[in-house]
Each structure stands twice: as C-alpha cells, then as structure tokens.
Amino acid sequence: MENTVEIRWHGRGGQGAKTACLLLADAAFSSGKYVQGFPEYGPERMGAPITAYNRISDTRCTVHSNIYDPDYVVVVDESLIASVDVTKGLNPEGAIIVNTPRTPAEIRAELGGYTGRVCTIDARRISEEVLGNNFPNTPMLAAAVKVSGVVEPEQFIANMEASFRHKFATKPQVVAGNMTVLTQSMQEVQVG
C-alpha cells in the first residue's frame, strides 16, 4: 500500500512485543493516523518466538494479511537473529532496530547482507537501570518511533504519558520511570 508504513516486531513470549506493538498503534492513532496493530497468534508460551505487526497510514488500510515486506523490523530479543530470518523482505530504504549492548556494525555482520540502516539500543540496561527490571518493550517502542519517524517525538512523548496513565491505572508509581525510559531510549538509539 502506498504511503503505509509497515512494521514487523520479533520478540519472545513474555517480553511485551505485542504490548509495544499496540502502544505504537495507540501513539500513531493519537497523532491522527489510521492504524493497525495485530499479533500473530499461535500456541504461545513464555520464551517462544512471536511476531506482531503495525500498519500506519493517512488513509484506512483495508489489507488484513500479515506483513511480508516491512519498512521497519524491531527485534526485542537479539538471540532471535540466529533462528529467525529477521530481515526477510525488509525494505533496504528502511531499518532494523535490535535490542543489544553491541554496536550496529557488530549486528550488521549477522544480518546476511542487509544494506539498510541497522540500529541498536541496549533496552535491557536502560530498563534495568531505570525500572529495576528487564522490560525491554518500552525502550524498543521509543527506538522504533525515533528511527521510523511515524510519530513526531514531542507528540509521542505527550501521548505516551496519557497512555501509560491509562495502562498503569492501578500502579501509577511506574509511569514516571517509563517516561524516563522513553526519553532516554530516544537519545541512546544508535544508527549505523
């Protein structure tokens, strides 16, 4: 579809890739876009590879198939690179964003010749430093927004505060930490 940004998420069950996908849909919706956010369902269990998808556009996208030629790929767990062809169909004009402490150059060497941008972010470290636990999806969401530009960063931050207040209605004490994670992650993402 013309003018539709397509994003594919790779994660493992329990890491929140689906939640991040739905939060991205939320953020894009709040900025006036038409959105789709949908996970691929199967017999989920903790740690199993899962895939989720976003379509974001200025007009309603009616296609209801999975995404095979994404503009962006987000890898929430870098160990998946060894077992899943994460760059399959990925637009060379787009980018892949990987959760890793390593550099873009090191990751590129493992991506089978992908020529587009390779971006990295140490989502685990940021999450553990700020939230005291490994919740990689919030940093990955921030990195995906920064790299793809599907939502203006300032608008994104403003929208997410409201989304977090809604999502964490029963534990408002975690909102501030998640907001810090978002801004810090947008600064730290490395583009190579």
């Binding site: 939320d26 919706f29 038409y34 789709q36 956010g37 949908f38 209801h64």
Partner: peptide, 12 residues
C-alpha cells in the same frame, strides 16, 4: 467477526 484478524487487531 473473524477471529484474531478482526477480534484481536486494533484499528480505527
């Protein structure tokens, strides 16, 4: 409505 494709997909 279609399971997952519609039921679990967030759209406008």
């Amino acid at each position: 409505q279609d399971g997952f494709i519609t039921s679990h997909a967030v759209e406008n």
